[in-house]
Each structure stands twice: as structure tokens, then as C-alpha cells.
Design a protein around this nucleic acid. Structure first.
Length: 566
DNA sequence: ATAGGGTTAG
């Protein structure tokens, strides 16, 4: 094999390395690279990319970086794929410092960065809410003569819209025309998508009509964004209207148009319709579809639409969420029959379905089955199971999976900590939850808005002096209020017998443009109801009431001045 | 490798 030359040798090794990495045996894959070195069969860039990708998937980005140094020292030049894999992983975990270091080092280690590399770096900054740096990357691109593509604009303009900086989005557009670049048709798609991203659905639809009236170019992308957004927020009727609009203007729907419409139906709980539509699309005729769905089906099946994992997983998730596990499982086997492989998303959703019902035995059985079907549990799998045990008040079971997670090489992430803190709060072990906050902070994990809300909710039910100490710590470490914060406090006012205060604050919040959600309205309705009943049972002391007022006040003040978190 | 599907707070 070695005598025959490097090519077949490399190929054979690469297949083996990939196989081991896919089975979660990353260390074995890595040791194969050492074997290749030993036999002077120099690994090619693909071999390195496989291990680097496997390390990134496991969240071991520093190891991935180490491999880049190893390959460089062995005269193997990293490729664009190498860099974009790690860059993307670093950005995803929010490590912009390391990402930037890598980005800056690319010209010395390999080919000069391409548009994709620039886009990835820029996207990292946008996700980290650093539009200043994102814009600098864009300018660097322009200076170096690297031409931006549709995605470049998508990332930047969508980012500006998302963070409410429309004038910057406009500035970017002006820059574009001054620079002599001809905006291509995708630009208008991006603008519509950007408005959708910013949650300005009505503006997006108005803009869409405007563009069509002016006869400017539009593709399915703009419509797909509108349809996807409508579906996501439960306006499946509007989604359908946009779809009709699209047909009327002679724009061909794509498979993602159909996926989005299906997702809308699934989310809305119209699982039966969505499922039947799916069957229709596959040529199995069934009666009882809504008229709109049938129209979509006709158009879509003419285009040869075949449902993919996304569509199936949307449906399976929908069934799991409403506790219809048997339907979810039926769909899973249907997937297999169609030649689609249930993936880690499918399985995690099913495990979560079991966990939500407290069926931990079935959840663990599904977990065990994963290995047989070649799936490696990931951090979401472990978090789901840990959460399941916490909900069942089985802290020993939670610890067991925490150990398993650790043994498989996963470090707890912020979600793991949030789940465990919620677990402790739910059994009134607030002190343990606070200890966990200290632990995560000293471990370099950054608390998020869920952390804040979880612990604040815990503090509200604790005795006052301990609650105050906890809040002081929390305000210092993670003051990140959002609409859930408001809801937590409104619900505490109700629970502690002060519905009038809930209503008073509800009134105050409606003065400012803060988005209330379904739960806010339900809570306010409950407060109103409680007040009408005039039940005088108040469990809260005047001091506690003041404490809640204080928390509500700082939340109000913060939300007045800042965009709420997620 | 640039979306869309999965875990956490009310």
C-alpha cells in the first residue's frame, strides 16, 4: 500500500479517520494521523480537516487550532475549509478574540482569505453584536479588493436591521452605489429579509409590494423570508397570502417555501393538516386537507418537492411538544422508509418528548439506541436528559448523566448550568444554585439572560435577606433582563397576592414600546381576575412588595433604554 | 463552510 504511492494510501487512511471521528472515537482518528507520520505517508489536508472538524464539533476548538500548527509544521498548507471550520466554531462559541487571531494569521499560514473567510469573521462579529468590528472587516475587504457577495450584504444589512441601525444599513447601500458595484438582484431580496430579521414583518411586506410595483428584480428568497417569518410567528394565513402573491408574480416557489409553510402549520398545532400535506406530497392521496394546503400541494408536487430532514424534524418536534410521542415515533420510522436518516436533532427531540412526560426510562432507552444507529450523543442530548431528571426531582439521575457527559469529553455549557440551577431552585435549594453561579463564573462560562431570570425567580421566593444578597451578586454578574423578566415579576406579584401591582406595572410598561408576549397578557388577565375576586389573602410582606417593585423598576428602566435580550 | 430542525427561565 505504501509502495504504491501516497494517493491510495491517503484515501484509505482518510476514510478510516472519518469513520472513527463519526463514531465519536476522535482520539483513535487522531492517532491514525500519528501512524501516518510514522510510516512517512504524509497526511493530506483532508485528513487534517477531518480531525479539525471533529474537534470543532465537540467544542474543542483549541485542540483544533493546535492541529493547524501541527499541519503547518509538517508542511501541509491549511485550506479555506480548514480556516472556515475553526473560525466558524470559534465565532459560534463567542470566542471572537481567538477567531480574530486566527483570521489575522491566515495570510502567513495559507492562501489569502477569501470572501467566505471574510463573511464568516464578519458574521461572528454581527452575532456578538459588534457591528463596528463587522463594518471594519467589510472595509478591509473593500480595501483589499476582495469582492463581497450576496452573503456579505446579507450579514451586514441584516445585522444593522437587527440592532436597529437602519441609517447604517442605508449608508452601506450608498457606499455600494458609490463604489460602482452594480447591485444584483439579490440585494432587494436581502433588504426584505433584513426587515423580516428585524421583526418588521409589515414593513417587509409593504416593501415587497413596492419593489414589485417598481419592477425591480426579486427572487423566491424575499418571499421565502416573509413566509418563514409569518410561519414562525404563527401567522400562517399571512404566510399563505405571501405565497399567493409570489405565484401571481410568476416567481417559482422553492423547496424552502414549502418547508416554511409546513413549519407554520406544524407550529400552529395543525399537525394533522401538516402531516397530511406531507403525505399528499409523497403521492399518497388522502382527503380532508384545508383548501390552501391543497393548493400548495398541487403547486409543490408539480415542482417535484420531496420532504427532507428539516420538514420531518419540524413535524416530529411539533408532535413531541404536544406529548404525542407515538405520532412522532411513527414519523421517525416513516423517515427511514423514505431513505432519510433520523439525525441528532430528531433523536434529541424524541428524548426531550419523553423527558417532558417524565418517562425517563424511555428517554434513556432512546439514548442507548443512539449508539446502535451510529449517532453520537452531543451536549444537547446530555442537557436534555439532565433536565429531564431535574424535572423529575431526581438529582441523582441528573448527576449520573452529568458524569456521563463529562466522561464523553463534554464540558458543561451555560445551558447545562442553567438547567441545574433551575433544578436546585425548584427544590428550594437556592444556596446550591448560587454556588453554581460562582462555579460557572470562575470556570469562565458567561451567564446569560436565562441565568438571570432563573436565579431572580429563585430569589423572589426566598426569604428577604438572602434574596437581597443573591440579587446584589446577580446584578453585578448578569443583569440581562428581557420580557421573561417582566413576566417572572408579574407572576410573583400575582402569587404573592398583589394583583393590583401587577396591573399597575402592566400599565406602566404599555407606555413604552416593549413587546408583550402571550404570557404577559395571560398574567395580566389573571391579575385582573384576581383583583375582581378581591381575595385578600396576601402572602407578601410590605418589604417583599418593595423588593419586587425595586426589581420591576430596574427592569423597566433597563428595557426603556436598551433592546431586550433575545 | 453563509438559513431553516434540537436542550434552559415565565
Amino acid at each position: 500500500m505504501i509502495r504504491k504511492g501516497p494517493r491510495p494510501c491517503n484515501y484509505t487512511f482518510n476514510v478510516m479517520i472519518l469513520g472513527f471521528c463519526r463514531k465519536g472515537l476522535l482520539r483513535v482518528g487522531e492517532s491514525l494521523l500519528h501512524v501516518m507520520w510514522k510510516f512517512q505517508c504524509d497526511p493530506d489536508v483532508i485528513a487534517y480537516n477531518i480531525v479539525i472538524n471533529a474537534n470543532c464539533v465537540r467544542g474543542q476548538t483549541l485542540d483544533a487550532l493546535h492541529w493547524v500548527h501541527l499541519m503547518t509544521s509538517r508542511a501541509c498548507k491549511p485550506s479555506i475549509v480548514t480556516f472556515s471550520t475553526i473560525l466558524n466554531a470559534l465565532c459560534k462559541e463567542g470566542n471572537l478574540v481567538e477567531a480574530r487571531k486566527l483570521f489575522d494569521g491566515i495570510p502567513d499560514m495559507g492562501d489569502p482569505p477569501s470572501t467566505i473567510i471574510y463573511n464568516t469573521m464578519m458574521d461572528g462579529y454581527v452575532k456578538a453584536r459588534d457591528m463596528g468590528q463587522a463594518n471594519m472587516i467589510y472595509e478591509e475587504m473593500m480595501n483589499k479588493g476582495i469582492s463581497p457577495d450576496g452573503i456579505t450584504f446579507n450579514i451586514l444589512i441584516a445585522g444593522y436591521y437587527k440592532y436597529g441601525r437602519e441609517e447604517d444599513a442605508d449608508r452601506l447601500l450608498r457606499d455600494l452605489s458609490v463604489s460602482g458595484l452594480v447591485p444584483d438582484s439579490s440585494l432587494y431580496d436581502i433588504l426584505v429579509s433584513g426587515l423580516c430579521w428585524a421583526g418588521r414583518l409589515d414593513d417587509a411586506m409593504e416593501f415587497l409590494e413596492d419593489i414589485l410595483e417598481k419592477g425591480l428584480p426579486l427572487s423566491a428568497v424575499a418571499f421565502n423570508s416573509v413566509i418563514a417569518t409569518c410561519s414562525r410567528v404563527g401567522l400562517e394565513h399571512k404566510a399563505y397570502k405571501a405565497y399567493k402573491f409570489m405565484i401571481a408574480f410568476g416567481i417559482t416557489p422553492s423547496s424552502s417555501t414549502c418547508s416554511s409553510l409546513l413549519m407554520g402549520l406544524s407550529k400552529k398545532g395543525n399537525l394533522q393538516e401538516a402531516r397530511e400535506l406531507l403525505s399528499f406530497i409523497n403521492g399518497l392521496s388522502k382527503a380532508g386537507l384545508v383548501e390552501e394546503a391543497y393548493d400548495i400541494f398541487l403547486d409543490m408536487s408539480r415542482k417535484g418537492f420531496v420532504p427532507n430532514n428539516f420538514v420531518y424534524n419540524s413535524l416530529i418536534g411539533g408532535f413531541c411538544n404536544c406529548g404525542k410521542l407515538s405520532d412522532a415515533l411513527k414519523l421517525e420510522s416513516e423517515m427511514r422508509k423514505k431513505g432519510l436518516l433520523p439525525d441528532i436533532y430528531t433523536t434529541n427531540m424524541i428524548i426531550n418528548g419523553f423527558c417532558k412526560q417524565g418517562r425517563m426510562k424511555s428517554a434513556v432507552d432512546t439514548f442507548m439506541d443512539m449508539y446502535r444507529s451510529g449517532l453520537t450523543p452531543d451536549i444537547v442530548t446530555y442537557n436534555t436528559l439532565i433536565g429531564g431528571y431535574c424535572k423529575a426531582f431526581d438529582l441523582a439521575g441528573a448527576d449520573e448523566f452529568l458524569c456521563k457527559m463529562h466522561a464523553s469529553g463534554w464540558e458543561p455549557d451555560i445551558t447545562t448550568y442553567n438547567i441545574r440551577m433551575q433544578g436546585f431552585c425548584s427544590v428550594r435549594k437556592i444556596n446550591r444554585a448560587v454556588m453554581m453561579l460562582d462555579e460557572l463564573v470562575s470556570g469562565g462560562v458567561v451567564p446569560d439572560t436565562v441565568t438571570y431570570n432563573t436565579l431572580m425567580n429563585g430569589a423572589c421566593v426566598d426569604i428577604l435577606d438572602r434574596a437581597m444578597i443573591l440579587m446584589a451578586k446577580l446584578l453585578k454578574l448578569a443583569f440581562l433582563p428581557n420580557i421573561v423578566t417582566t413576566n417572572v415579576l408579574l407572576s410573583q406579584f400575582c402569587k404573592q397576592g398583589m394583583p393590583e401591582k401587577a396591573l399597575m406595572w402592566g400599565q406602566k410598561f404599555s407606555d413604552i414600546p416593549i413587546w408583550f408576549d402571550d404570557i404577559t397578557y395571560k398574567l395580566l388577565e389573571r391579575a385582573y381576575h384576581n383583583m375582581q375576586e378581591g381575595s385578600k389573602i396576601s402572602s407578601g410582606t410590605p418589604e417583599k412588595s418593595l423588593f419586587l417593585d425595586f426589581l420591576m423598576y430596574i427592569t423597566y428602566d433597563y428595557l426603556c433604554r436598551n433592546k431586550p435580550h433575545k
